[in-house]
C-alpha cells in the first residue's frame, strides 16, 4: 500500500521533544518514523535531533532509538543491522537521521564505507545547511552567501563563499542501490521515497532539505513554505538515483521566484544583487547538467 496523508500511521514515534518551533528536521524524523513504523531502529548522532529528544529521563522515541558518535551514524547502523541479522531478525529497518554536518563533514567516511559494503541500512540526511545545534556554524552543505556565526557577513566577506557540496551525486557515485533528494515542503514525495527505500535491500540514502527557522532567519510557520519554494524556484532539485539511472522528479514551477525566496531569509539579507545573480547562475548550471 502506498503511503499518503490518508494512510499514514496515526501513531507517533517522536514526540515530547524540545525542538524549536517550526523545526524542519524534527518534521523529517517524525514523518519518516510514521512511514517506517515500530520496527524501525533509529540511530541519531550528536546533533539537533539527539539533543532535543534524548535527555535522560525524558526520552521521546516510541521505537528503539540510540545516539551514535558524531562521526558514527553509518557505522553504528551497520553494527545494528549485522547484530540483528546475526540473531535471525530480518523484519526491521535500521535508519539513521543525521544532519548536514554529521553527514557531509564528519560522518562522510563512515557513510562512504557503509555504501561501499552495501550494508542494508537507510540513511536520511536532514539538511538544515549549517551546524544548528551548536549555534549556526558553517558546514560543507551551507550554501553560497549564507551568513553563519563562522561565516559572518561583514564589510570584507559576505557570508559563506563556497557552494554547497553535492552529497546526492557523491553518494550516487558509489553506485548506491537507491538515493533520493526530498523536501519537507513536499511531504507526500518524501514519504513515498522513504517507503520505497525501506523496501530495497542494500544501502539507501535520502537527502531531505529541512529549514531551520532559528538559523535561516525565518518565522517558525514559514519553514514548510520555504522548503517548498526552494524546490519551486529550482534551487533544490527533487531527484532519484536507482539502478544506475538518475531521474528528476519535478520541474521548477517558478524560476523567477528565486530572488524573493532568498530575500525572505535573514541569513541572506546582506547579499547584493550580484550575489543573487551568482546563486542564480549556480542553479542554472545545475539544471543545464540535467538537474544533477
Amino acid at each position: 500500500m502506498n503511503v499518503n496523508a490518508n494512510t499514514l500511521n496515526e501513531d507517533e514515534f517522536f514526540y515530547g521533544h524540545k525542538a524549536c518551533a517550526g523545526c524542519g528536521g524534527s518534521l523529517a524524523v517524525r514523518i519518516a518514523l510514521k512511514v517506517l513504523g515500530k520496527r524501525a531502529v533509529a540511530v541519531l548522532p550528536a546533533g539537533c535531533m539527539s539533543a532535543v529528544g534524548f535527555n535522560f529521563p525524558q526520552l521521546c522515541f516510541a521505537n528503539n532509538a540510540i545516539i551514535s558518535t558524531f562521526a558514527g551514524t553509518a557505522s553504528m547502523l551497520t553494527g545494528i543491522e549485522a547484530g540483528l541479522r546475526a540473531k535471525g531478525i530480518t523484519d526491521f529497518v535500521a535508519v539513521g537521521f543525521a544532519g548536514d554536518g554529521g553527514t557531509a563533514d564528519i560522518g562522510i567516511q563512515a557513510l562512504s564505507g557503509a555504501i561501499d559494503r552495501d550494508d542494508n541500512i537507510l540513511y536520511i540526511c536532514y539538511d538544515n545547511e549549517a551546524y544548528m545545534n551548536t549555534g549556526v556554524q558553517k558546514s560543507s552543505l551551507t550554501p553560497f552567501g549564507a551568513k553563519t556565526t563562522t561565516t559572518p557577513a561583514g564589510g570584507n566577506v559576505r557570508g559563506n563563499l563556497r557552494p554547497k557540496k553535492n552529497m546526492f551525486e557523491i553518494v550516487a557515485a558509489h553506485g548506491i542501490k537507491y538515493a533520493a533528494t526530498a523536501s519537507i515542503g513536499y511531504l507526500p514525495d518524501y514519504m513515498k521515497k522513504v517507503q520505497h527505500a525501506s523496501e530495497i535491500k542494500g544501502t539507501k540514502y535520502i537527502h531531505v532539505i529541512a529549514p531551520c527557522p532559528t538559523g535561516w532567519g525565518i518565522a517558525p510557520d514559514e519553514s514548510v513554505e520555504i522548503a517548498k519554494e526552494a524546490v519551486d524556484c529550482g534551487l533544490w532539485i527533487l531527484a532519484e538515483y536507482e539502478n544506475g539511472i538518475f531521474s528528476v522528479n519535478t520541474k521548477p514551477k517558478n524560476l523567477s521566484a528565486l530572488r524573493t525566496h532568498i530575500k525572505k531569509q535573514g541569513r541572506f539579507k546582506h547579499l547584493t544583487d550580484e550575489d543573487i545573480d551568482h546563486i542564480e547562475s549556480l542553479r542554472d548550471s545545475k539544471w543545464e547538467n540535467g538537474g544533477q
Partner: peptide
C-alpha cells in the same frame, strides 16, 4: 562504532 551498534542488539 560498529561493534557498539552490534553489542546494542
Amino acid at each position: 562504532s560498529c561493534a557498539i551498534g552490534a553489542s546494542a542488539t
